[in-house]
Write a protein that binds this DNA or RNA. Structure first.
Lengths: 342, 342
DNA sequence: ACTGTTTAAATAAACGGTTTTAAAGCCCGT
DNA sequence: ACGGGCTTTAAAACCGTTTATTTAAACAGT
């Protein structure tokens, strides 16, 4: 590192003031075209690097946007993030990513760090148990927040997510339509708004079909492949002998199918399984997974767009923005087999 | 946002100078213990937020570390990133993540942005075709770089990765030991150092066993499940009738197994398949995947540790750091079946 | 030649911290 | 009363930009 090149370095070598250099580099009409070109050329020649910290100290806009979700490695969030990324890229915003792994403390640290860095805004899928104050902390310090995927009570920040209750009822109805009556719900928790909504959608669909709801058919667990895989044992040993499973998401469904296959049964024929999210992976699973498209890319794109609009002052987003899920029928579900002794 | 609280706000309300406040908050021995407590208490009460941009302008340390890989959503990188994250967290460093999707330009933009933000260092798995200058740009501007997973010729920055040639030869030897002679290599590219190393490992193992190397058995392709899935058709229609496949990674292997299963064959019995990386998913695939552990967590942890050491000046890392891969034998490989007409 | 306008560039004051240097206050011995 | 050595605090310079305000120069118009 020979020597840091700054505005004043350029100014000196050219015999102009730093103000002129600053204006020239930002294409201000206040500096003559010929001067501007001379300055830009020199900046390039010297390898000048714009110092954003200095600039943002003055302008109080950093171009940084934070995004925090449960786990960026989870394909569900990864698909959302990809959409956010491409939207923010277009606006040349830098985005800082973080996992909170459902630790409220980790999430708070992230928000705090973002505030220290002068983040312009934050998009978050809040950790389980996030107190509203943690979000207000951001807003109170001039950093607007947008929620995705999960709601928080007692807060009126904009939120973008799929309509979980409706989505799960689609899957449940699909299974009911195939003749299934003993349908388990596998994976996930009831501690989030999402969890409660999904369980509600499952219950509603059953009730509407006059099927009694048996709490013993609810198998909560991790929202991962591993979780689904491990739930298979429990699922197969239920005294109620369920013939189908509505899974929390595609990962759980794929794990469950693997577990079922290990036990020598054929998913899609012996047991019907639905996923949720329609990850890219769902279509190439074996058997191809029947699932519910949950609009990850829409959620990501819209949330990012909303934040950018808010920052630019062009439009103030507000309230809940629900995406309507859609059924994707593939090979992991099939008609109820006549019972051996039936 | 009532009013920005800054050092001077605290100083005024307490009737001391900003210098004292600054020193107190950073636990300097230059300010009396009782004063320090009074100041810290007031800072807390007022909801003071440390302004890192202002501070780093003076100190030229931002606490920001960049990490850029091909695709953070790829579980291979995700596992590395998790290790990096936990290591950096311990040192209270903020890390900024980015994908380059093998676009040299996107990668350069990232490095440029990081320089503008005053990043302290960068960890990268360079995009295919990265010119050494792009890395020197970082180093020349005082931002040390550490490479992971992929090398670049003509550069002497430290690099951490698995020993690919050795690792693939482990997998190939395992198949040869089971009696296989016609072994395809599926997925990936030969455009990266990794790719060349892996192909070399495969070739070396075959040669040592006096098996002729047939270039027609090399099926390059995307390093994804989708890629493996689609390669199945090609694989099954090869005139040489391979009985086994050494796959670029676990994702390709799982995709290939799915594709083989779709064609009515049973992976692990009719065709032996090896993966590479030993992702969490490998163990729960059906059949459980025989693969090679590639030390993702080691790579991530060591790379992060090396960068932090370099930044703190405590130790200057250098050269290549190879992790020795290890075989993980599961159910996706088995002895060569006697040929139908043999 | 003298205003009055435009246009181009320079000056200087922020922005919010850190850190060096200097000063003030106090204790104590002589 | 004085001064040496400590501890504690204040003052001021600085980090690299942006931007409002001035200044200077050029040019018209009367």
């Amino acid at each position: 590192m020979a020597q840091k090149i700054k505005l004043s370095t350029i100014a000196e070598t050219l015999g102009v003031s730093t103000a002129t250099v600053s204006l020239a580099l930002r294409d201000s009409p206040l500096v003559a075209a010929v001067t501007r070109e001379r300055i830009k050329e020199q900046a390039r020649a010297l390898g000048y690097i714009y110092n954003r910290r200095a600039a943002s100290l003055r302008t109080s806009r950093s171009g940084i946007i934070g995004v925090v979700v449960h786990d960026i490695m989870n394909p569900f969030y990864a698909e959302i993030l990809k959409a956010i990324e491409s939207e923010l890229d277009r606006d040349r915003q830098t985005f800082i990513l973080s996992n909170h792994y459902d630790s409220v403390e980790k999430q708070r640290n992230f928000v705090e760090t973002l505030l220290q860095l002068g983040g312009d805004g934050v998009i978050m899928s809040p950790a389980i148990g996030t107190p509203p104050e943690d979000i207000r902390l951001a807003e109170d310090n001039g950093m607007p927040a947008i929620l995705i995927a999960r709601s928080i009570d007692g807060l009126d920040v904009p939120i973008f997510r799929g309509d979980d209750s409706y989505g799960i009822s689609l899957a449940t109805n699909h299974l009911i339509g195939l003749g299934h009556r003993t349908i388990a719900m596998v994976g996930g928790t009831d501690q989030t708004s999402t969890g409660r909504d999904r369980y509600q959608g499952y219950v509603n669909a059953l009730r509407k079909a006059n099927i009694e709801v048996d709490p013993g058919l609810r198998i909560p667990g991790p929202r991962t492949k591993q979780g689904g895989f491990e739930a298979a044992v429990h699922f197969l040993s239920l005294p109620q002998k369920p013939t189908a499973a509505v899974c929390w998401n595609d990962l759980v469904a794929i794990g469950l199918m693997n577990g079922i296959a290990r036990a020598g049964l054929v998913p899609g024929r012996d047991v019907s399984v639905t996923g949720y999210d329609d990850l890219e992976e769902a279509a190439i699973a074996t058997p191809a997974l029947t699932t519910v498209w949950n609009g990850q890319s829409e959620v990501g794109r819209n949330a990012a767009r909303a934040l950018l609009d808010k920052l630019s002052g062009s439009h103030e987003p507000d309230g809940i923005h629900l995406i309507k899920p859609e059924m994707r029928i593939r090979q992991s579900t099939g008609p109820l087999k006549p019972h051996p002794e039936g």
